[in-house]
């Protein structure tokens, strides 16, 4: 039995939840499709669908099989593409996901660095948030990604963790530009423009928790993954943003005292990294260190609260 092909039929049925529609989509008659699903059930020793008079529903086993089947089908497709590329003499492709705020210079250095190491392999970059990268990696649509921590995902392996400490971007007429270093608590009363929670769920929550600890609870958080939009809000004095210094007239960058924010990132892949993924990882780590101001993660300092008799807790 061609298990992969049967899993493909299974996935179409799960998407349609209707044997007739699924068969039409596959360009075949309904009885042979039903037959093949039945054979798959026999092969796996479980029922995958509950079939009642007019309804088709996934069983528990069927639901568990969906992500596994998707991954197997995607990886086999990927393998075939890779091999047929080679057979036709086309160049191999590494599909990598990168965060939206990487910046043009870092992106260019990444591509140049990889090209230098693997001139025969094409690096296909897609701008993606961490959540989308995790899904794409698990489904085999990406070979390697650059994820921002914390990430809660089973089944991924990670390269070295790099960290950077963002400062704050302010409009130049903001009174806080008077300080050489700004405390998180100084930002109180200002709105914040930040990457979206959908794109970066872990880092979003982590960043806001640090802000609250530091006394900054923004009244409004504007979410965007577009750097230009964020800078526009900063420039107009609408909101402040966290990040690296921006070369934009009218926007002033200040470091945050005590480095209360630590943004971590690392390359990630599924299963065993192939040689291309290994090369991408080492190039990415080098570029992020040289061009994006990231450093190897040391031991993070414990956030401290210095006690004060008059304003601390009295009990």
């Amino acid at each position: 039995m061609d298990l992969v092909r049967h899993l493909g039929y299974f996935l179409v049925v799960t998407e349609e939840l209707h044997f007739g529609n699924a068969a039409a989509r596959l360009g075949m008659a309904q009885p042979p499709l039903s037959q093949r699903i039945k054979r798959l059930e026999e092969e796996l020793g479980v029922r995958l669908f509950e079939r009642s008079s007019r309804r088709v529903a996934l069983t528990e086993a069927g639901r568990l099989l969906v992500p596994e089947a998707r991954e197997i089908v995607a990886r086999v497709e990927r393998m075939r593409d890779l091999m047929s590329d080679l057979a036709r003499g086309d160049t191999a492709v590494v599909r990598a996901g990168v965060p939206a705020d990487l910046g043009a210079a870092v992106l260019a250095a990444l591509i140049a660095g990889f090209r230098e190491r693997r001139p025969g392999v094409r690096l296909s970059l897609t701008e993606m948030g961490t959540a989308a990268q995790v899904t794409a990696l698990l489904e085999g649509r990406l070979d390697v990604g650059l994820l921002r921590h914390p990430v809660a995902a089973n089944g991924l392996a990670y390269g070295p963790v790099l960290v950077r400490h963002p400062g704050v971007l302010l409009a130049e007429d903001d009174e806080l530009t008077a300080w050489a270093t700004v405390h998180l608590g100084d930002l109180a009363g200002r709105d914040l423009v930040l990457f979206s929670r959908e794109a970066e769920p872990g880092l979003y929550d982590d960043t806001l928790a640090s802000c609250r600890r530091g006394g900054f609870v923004p009244a409004e958080i504007v979410c965007t993954d577009r750097v230009e939009f964020a800078l526009g809000l900063v420039l107009s004095g609408t909101a402040v943003a966290f990040g690296a210094p921006a070369e934009v007239p009218g926007v002033v960058w200040r470091p945050l005292a005590g480095t209360p924010l630590a943004w971590r990132c690392s390359p990630a892949w599924r299963a065993e990294p192939g040689p291309y993924v290994r090369d991408f990882t080492s190039v990415a780590v080098q570029v992020l260190k040289e061009s994006a101001g990231m450093v190897d993660e040391g031991v993070p300092p414990a956030p401290r609260v210095a006690p004060r008799p008059a304003t601390g807790f009295l009990a």
């Binding site: 405390h183 005590g258 401290r304 210095a306 004060r308 008799p309 304003t311």
Partner: peptide, 21 residues
């Protein structure tokens, strides 16, 4: 000196939990 109770002078310039005054 860290047990002084007054919050209104020097300490008021550093209203930050992670700064000791």
């Amino acid at each position: 000196m860290a047990l002084q109770v007054w919050p209104h002078r020097l300490a008021s310039g550093f209203p930050f939990d992670d700064v000791a005054v």
